[in-house]
Structures are given as C-alpha cells and as structure tokens.
C-alpha cells in the first residue's frame, strides 16, 4: 500500500518538477571547456565542509574501520590484506580510480567490491562478504581513500568496450513506469531542481559515499539502485553484471575527474 501511494506521488513530483525547473542546467558535452561537475559542487557549503574535514566527515569512521580490517588476519590462510599488500598508502594508491577492471585470469570485469572479495575468498580463504555489508564497505572506503585526489583512470583494456557500450545503452534507455532515462535527468536536466534537490551529473567520484539519506556509507551500486527505484524501473538483482556495466560507463564518462572518496552526499 505504502509503495503504491508513493509511486503515484512520484509521478506528481517528476511531472511538476520538470515544469517548474528553476535554474538552467548545463549541457554536459559542450565543446571546449570541461563542464563536468562533481556532485560535491552541487552541495551547499555546510555539506562541502563536512566532506572536507577528515574529523567531521562521518565517512572517515568507516575508513578507520577499514584500516583495522586491513591488518586483521582472517580466513584459512590466516593472512591480512597488509601481509601481502603492505602499506596501503603506496600499494592501493590510484587503485580505486581504475575499477571496474578485469582481474588477471578472469574474463569479466569486477568492481572494487568484487576485487576485494576475490582476495578475500582466494587469498585469505575466508567467506565472501555479503553485498553492502559494513565490513566490505569499510574496506572499500579504506582502499578508495588512498586514491583521493587522483584522476579517474579507467583501464585501457579493449575487452571492456562491449561492457561500456552496454552500460551506456542502459544509461540512455527510457525505462520504468516513469519512462525516463538516466540521461534525461543527469545529462539534459543536470543542475535543475527536482523537488528542491539539485540533479547532479551523476559522476561516481566519491564512492563509497556517506549519504545522509542512508545515515551511513553505501556503494555506487546502491546509489544506482536508488535511481532505478526512483523511476520505478525493475531493479537488476543485487549481483547483476548490469551494475558493473553501468559503473564502467560512468567511470569512463568521468575519466580524469578527481577521486574524493569517502564523499558526503545528501
């Protein structure tokens, strides 16, 4: 009942908001100057400050938790991440900026969560983390924080092209009961207001992010699920490759932008 009620309300919001769109959105693929904006730039000063100050950014609590897990010996192998990778500040620098990628010996891409799970199951011989479990997110945040300030650098692997094409296709396809595509909001209407919220350009610069709405840390996949749910589209199952395809497309689209994980978002 609740869901139905909200679905109806959603039509009202989106309909009304587009009619009332306030500020002029910027077209993203302009010629010349880079008009790409991180979601950070669409936040007010109070939230920017929260993200910038490491002892005020709640995402840093998860980085702290991740740093403890980094040196905890677990699994049948009894090894910690640190036993093989040493100081994360050097070994993990720039790593998150390259994912999703195809691991050695594999034929399909994994995102950072999947990459960490590979080490967890194969190298540590410990059970894989549940999707979006706090320990997994904490490790992702710790690893991703080592790439802060680094440019997003998707791998130059020809095997990834077909995945990016699939991701872009999903991004541009109209779907859901609202018959909207990601592009309609994030390319054509970015910068405009949707029920008071500024529509960002959807660059994955800050993941995992501390989203105030979640009152916690969450993955890019969870963020994508929220947007799919927002347009009343059918959600891909949590472990579906479609998310990795979308992530690959979004990272390519944000190539060169600065990593800022763990970011804060409303």
């Amino acid at each position: 009942m609740r869901a139905r009620y909200f679905a109806i309300a959603l039509f009202l919001v989106f309909g009304a908001s587009f009619a009332l769109a306030q500020s002029q959105g910027q077209s993203q693929r302009g010629s010349g100057a880079d008009t790409r904006r991180s979601g950070y730039q669409d936040m007010g000063p109070a939230l920017q400050q929260m993200q910038d100050d490491d002892t005020a950014n709640p995402g840093m609590l998860f980085v702290q938790q991740g740093s403890k897990l980094w040196s905890a010996r677990v699994g049948v192998a009894g090894k910690a991440c640190a036993d093989c990778h040493g100081d994360a500040a050097t070994s993990m620098k720039g790593v998150a900026a390259r994912y999703p990628a195809i691991p050695p010996g594999a034929d399909r891409p994994v995102d950072l969560e999947g990459r960490i799970d590979l080490c967890r199951t194969e190298r540590q011989q410990a059970p894989a983390f549940a999707h979006d479990s706090q320990d997994s997110l904490a490790l992702q945040a710790f690893v991703a924080a080592q790439s802060r300030g680094q440019p997003i650098a998707p791998p130059d692997d020809p095997r990834l092209s077909s995945w990016r094409v699939q991701g872009e296709e999903i991004y541009r396809r109209r779907q859901g009961q609202l018959n909207l595509s990601c592009a309609i909001c994030h390319d054509e209407n970015a910068g405009k207001k949707l029920a008071g919220v500024t529509i960002p350009q959807a660059h994955p610069t800050g993941y995992p992010v501390y989203r105030l709405e979640w009152q916690g840390l969450g993955s890019l996949r969870r963020r994508l699920r929220n947007c799919l749910f927002g347009i009343r589209a059918e959600l891909y199952p949590v472990g579906a490759p479609e998310y990795v395809a979308l992530e690959l497309y979004l990272m390519e689209r944000a190539k060169g932008m600065t990593m800022e994980a763990p970011a804060v978002r409303p």
Binding site: V13, A195, G196, V197, R225, F229, L235, P266
Partner: peptide, 9 residues
C-alpha cells in the same frame, strides 16, 4: 528539502 531517488520499499 526531502531527498529524491530513495531506497526501494
């Protein structure tokens, strides 16, 4: 302001 694009029910 209330957030847009939230969690599944």
């Amino acid at each position: 302001t209330l957030a847009a694009c939230l969690e599944e029910a």
